[in-house]
Design a protein around this nucleic acid. Structure first.
Lengths: 195, 195
DNA sequence: ATTGCTTTGTGATAAATGTCAAATGAATTC
DNA sequence: GAATTCATTTGACATTTATCACAAAGCAAT
């Protein structure tokens, strides 16, 4: 459920965006801000739903989300994101129906950005074009790392890496979701954990 | 072994690039061309080597390549590409050491592009910036599809999809490499094929 | 054709993981 | 606190796949 959607005070929003996107030129930031708005929403809210077209990508100010594909009864998670991360789906960015669902893991605060409008800005504003590229490239590097892990590493090692690099995920996400993310059943994850 | 590296006749190169990148403005194309050159090379040549920084991405005019990670004795392929495809690694594009090796599957003809110079162009030229984005986004969509297949589909189904969508790969690539691409051993692939 | 070399196929295991079922634990509601 | 629900763990078993060993087939060079 969406609790509140309002325009933040301009100066507050500006301050936040400035700290997140320090490379954005002053005028670019002003244009960018026009298509950004504050959003507060409860656990379980779906920011993006599988099979649907959407207009927004998001910056997480507070809280966390999971991204997953629906598979028969169970869901298979593809990533998690928390505070200070920019999120969305590349299909949504391309104007296509999303393949994944993005859902809030807890009550969260976000900034949402209108993709269509911001893509328009990228047509004339180089610093915004480069900002968006950077976001996409970061996501691409992440996908490659994930493919590497799924193709090369045993499930034990994938668990180990996840546990060592981002132990905080275990506080936020259910083991069932983590198991699906690691590419095993929850029973198998349970056995891996009891080493 | 690199057989020939020469500047193509300007008009020939222009004709090729124009047909591949029809959205590029006339002046952008001229700038772009400055950092493109023709390359003919034999089977087994490594365009990009794991662990090294490189300067180029490529367009395949004729022939084919495989991309793989070296793992102990055997290699694990991550993708194949043939005629009319733009190839490279995202790490190379970012100036980082490549994680993958890209190797010619057969004698091939390519256009190579200087990444550094072309990235400079993206700083001032919007149509080139957008062209590069498009290439990266296409790659990203491909990675997502591949992750989906590895997480969701059985090896039998992955084989089936590959066989139905791109049967020509089986003419060009060894079953050993295809097996590693599908995430199974060659023995398992052999058994899948004998259904 | 013969010799090597590489690729592919087959058989017999062993290991990893999935599936199903039930038990435990933890959190929530009445 | 008892009852309900949901998440996690554990056990028994089935399935898939890897591993190892070797045989067969394809190909190139002599």
């Amino acid at each position: 459920m969406i609790l509140a959607e309002k325009r933040m005070s301009k100066s507050e929003l500006q301050k936040i965006l400035k700290s997140f996107f320090p490379n954005l030129e002053e005028e670019s930031l002003d244009a960018f801000m026009k298509y950004a708005s504050y959003l507060k929403s409860t656990k379980g809210t779906k920011l993006i739903s599988e099979g649907k077209r959407h207009r927004y990508f998001y910056l997480i100010l507070k809280g966390g989300v999971k991204s997953y594909y629906s598979k028969k009864s169970r869901d298979v998670c593809t990533w998690f994101a928390f505070k200070n991360e920019v999120i969305g789906t590349i299909t949504t960015y391309e104007g296509l129906p999303s393949k994944e669902t993005i859902e809030l893991l807890e009550d969260s605060e976000l900034i949402k950005f209108n993709i269509e409008k911001i893509k328009e800005l990228t047509l004339t504003d180089l610093s915004i074009s480069q900002l968006m590229n950077g976001i996409i490239i970061e996501h691409t590097l992440y996908l490659e790392e994930r493919l590497y892990q799924l193709q090369f590493m045993t499930s034990k090692n994938r668990y180990k890496v996840l546990y060592e690099l981002t132990p905080e995920i275990f506080q936020e996400v259910s083991l069932t979701d983590i198991a699906s993310y690691l590419g095993v059943t929850r029973e198998t994850l349970s056995r891996i954990r009891s080493k």
